[in-house]
């Protein structure tokens, strides 16, 4: 589903250039539930943005669901995001002036789906995340967990190939985190490919594969586990 090979990413600011990703090779198959971990500043978000076709990379190659993602025009990138990708953010990013159902329906608008169909599908997905009774609530009338459920419904509504979540539980308490993780696992059981960036081992442990970023490179899970254990002892 996702194949990265030798991805390099630099951030340039004036004369200086920051080498953030130093050759990432990554292969994620359809239906996988994967987490990306790593210390702050290790490049997790950068990597996720590249996967999400929100950012470009300087070297290497990226194939998403068989489509090569290189030098895309903005419009092409937008179509790719709309068709293949669903995003879940730490701070939910719901539009404050739209109610839950309208927020969920928004990506369908950019697919040119008619209003009736949009509302119908939005309600379906709200029901799936257990919020069918809140569909007319505005975001400020919802709790953090509920907002994130709406966001997940929105990420799912276009039936994307991959769901990308950047610290989706970062703003939630541990009980709500657990609820959201349960929801992710349920979504995964339905056959979705999910990539979650997280700081929390609890979250990472509930995924089937953990990818560790260190110093702009992927280190094997085992090595890091060993390091953790060594520290523990």
């Amino acid at each position: 589903m996702i194949r990265l090979s030798d991805i390099h990413k630099y951030y340039r600011s004036g004369e200086q250039s920051l080498h953030v990703l130093k050759g990432i090779d990554l292969h994620i198959q359809e239906g996988e539930l994967v987490s990306i971990m790593g210390s702050s500043g290790s490049g997790k978000s950068t990597l996720l943005n590249i996967l999400g076709v929100l950012d470009s990379y300087d070297q290497g190659s990226y194939a998403l669901a068989g489509h090569s993602v290189t030098n895309l025009r903005e419009t092409q990138a937008a179509h790719l995001r709309n068709k293949f990708l669903g995003f879940v953010f730490q701070s939910f990013n719901l539009l404050p002036f739209k109610n839950a159902a309208e927020n969920v329906a928004l990506p369908l608008y950019y697919q040119g789906v008619g209003r009736k169909e949009r509302n119908y599908r939005a309600e379906q997905y709200l029901e799936m995340v257990g919020l069918s009774d809140r569909k007319h609530f505005m975001p400020n009338q919802l709790s953090g967990g509920q907002k994130q459920r709406v966001a997940i419904a929105r990420a799912l509504v276009c039936k994307p190939k991959v769901i990308l979540a950047d610290e989706p539980t970062g703003a939630l308490d541990s009980r709500t985190t657990q609820e959201i993780m349960s929801l992710f696992k349920e979504v995964h059981r339905l056959g979705n490919t999910i990539i979650i960036v997280t700081h929390e081992p609890d979250v990472a442990n509930q995924t089937h594969r953990q990818i560790y970023l260190k110093d702009g490179r992927v280190t094997t899970a085992d090595q890091v586990h060993l390091q953790h254990e060594a520290v523990a002892i």
């Binding site: 903005e74 990013n93 990506p107 950019y110």
Partner: peptide
């Protein structure tokens, strides 16, 4: 800006 950014992430083209 945030709303526009979100719309773009959800698939809004520059033209739209």
């Amino acid at each position: 800006t945030r709303e526009i950014g979100l719309r773009k992430a959800l698939g809004a083209t520059p033209a739209s």
